[in-house]
């Protein structure tokens, strides 16, 4: 078993981990990093429950090797919550729109939605659907998840316009 030291930023903090070269980023984050918002659903990048942001882009952390995280900026759901512990706009929208049921896919969906809500121009619902179709949900039929993302994106764009 080969181990390797890696340095990366996780939720805004510089970290150093000594990882098994075979382990996935999901294993690292759920294990030594103690970030269990990341959920395990399939291990092969099919369900999206383990989605995290790597340098701002959503990735399935189960098929991303931990050693590839060297020098990367990683954000998990723990890093989306406001520093005072209150809910960020997208989390609040998931609550208010009823986009959460069993909740196992929710962290992945929120992470996948972050690039969408940060877009400069509004997306159609079709575009939102396409961008989240790497994440599976069996409870909600996606209707209210799309509602929550659409609402937050609109709100952010309006806020940016106000300056």
């Amino acid at each position: 078993m080969t181990k390797k030291s890696i340095k990366c930023r996780v939720n805004g903090v510089n970290r150093e981990y000594f990882v098994d070269v075979r382990s996935s980023l999901m294993d690292l984050l759920r294990g030594p990093a103690g970030l269990d918002s990341i959920k395990h659903g399939c291990d092969v990048g099919e369900c999206g429950a383990c989605t995290v942001l790597i340098n701002g882009r959503p990735f399935n952390s189960c098929i991303y090797l931990a050693v590839w995280a060297e020098g990367k900026e990683i954000v998990t759901l723990e890093g989306v919550t406001n520093p005072d512990g209150s809910l960020s706009d997208i989390q609040q929208a998931f609550v208010d729109e009823g986009a959460v049921q069993c909740g196992i896919c929710t962290p992945g969906f929120i992470m996948a939605s972050i690039p969408i809500i940060n877009q400069e121009t509004p997306s159609t619902r079709e575009e939102i659907r396409r961008q989240i179709s790497g994440n599976l949900c069996r409870c909600t039929g996606y209707q209210k998840i799309v509602d929550a993302i659409e609402k937050t994106q609109k709100k952010r764009i309006a806020e940016k316009k106000k300056g």
């Binding site: 269990d36 959920k39 998990t76 759901l77 919550t81 809910l87 609550v95 959460v100 909740g103 929710t106």
Partner: peptide, 19 residues
């Protein structure tokens, strides 16, 4: 009304068996 467990589920506080 909003779900009583929604806040825990959108922050990762909700614990499942694997956690």
């Amino acid at each position: 009304l909003n779900r009583v467990d929604a806040s825990d589920k959108v922050t990762g506080k909700a614990k499942y068996t694997g956690d």
